[in-house]
Simulated scan of single mutants.
Amino acid sequence: MSTFGRRKVVNLTLHLRKKRVEWKPTAGEVCSNKNFSFMIMQTQAELNYQRIAQAIEYLEKNFQHQPELDEVAEQVHVSPFHFQRLFTEWAGISPKRFLQYLTVDFLKSKLKETTTVVEAAEAAGLSSQSRVYDLFTTLEAVTPQEYKQRGSITIQYGFTETRFGTALLGVSERGICWLSFIQTDGDAFASLEEMKTYWHNSIFRENKELIAEYAMRIFTSPRQPKADTPLPGERGRG
Rank of each mutant, 00 (worst) to 15 (best):
A227Y: 09
T162I: 05
K34R: 12
V76L: 07
T138M: 14
Y147G: 03
W90M: 10
S2N: 14
S94H: 09
Q66R: 14
L126M: 11
V30C: 07
S79M: 00
S221W: 03
G125E: 14
T220M: 10
E161I: 01
H65M: 11
N11I: 07
P144L: 10
F63Y: 14
R17Q: 08
R85A: 15
V132F: 12
S152F: 07
T162Q: 06
F98Q: 02
Y101Q: 06
G236N: 12
E213S: 08
E194W: 00
E140Y: 06
E71N: 04
P230D: 08
E89H: 08
R223T: 07
S79Q: 01
N33L: 13
I182W: 00
R235C: 01
T114L: 12
S152E: 13
A73T: 03
E113T: 15
G165V: 12
D187S: 10
S109G: 06
Q84I: 05
A215W: 02
E213R: 12
E213L: 13
A188D: 06
Q66E: 09
L107V: 07
N207D: 15
V117G: 03
E71R: 06
L102M: 08
L139V: 03
L139F: 13
V76P: 00
F159I: 09
L231K: 02
E113P: 02
L179G: 04
F63T: 03
D228G: 03
G151W: 00
A188S: 15
K34H: 08
R205N: 14
K108H: 05
L168Q: 04
V30I: 12
W199S: 02
D228P: 00
L16M: 08
I182E: 02
P25W: 13
R163P: 00
I93V: 15
Y147T: 02
R237S: 07
R223M: 12
L135M: 04
N11P: 00
K110N: 09
E68Y: 05
K24N: 13
G236P: 00
H77F: 11
A45Y: 02
F4R: 15
L210K: 03
E46F: 01
L12H: 10
K108R: 13
L86N: 06
G165R: 03
S172L: 04
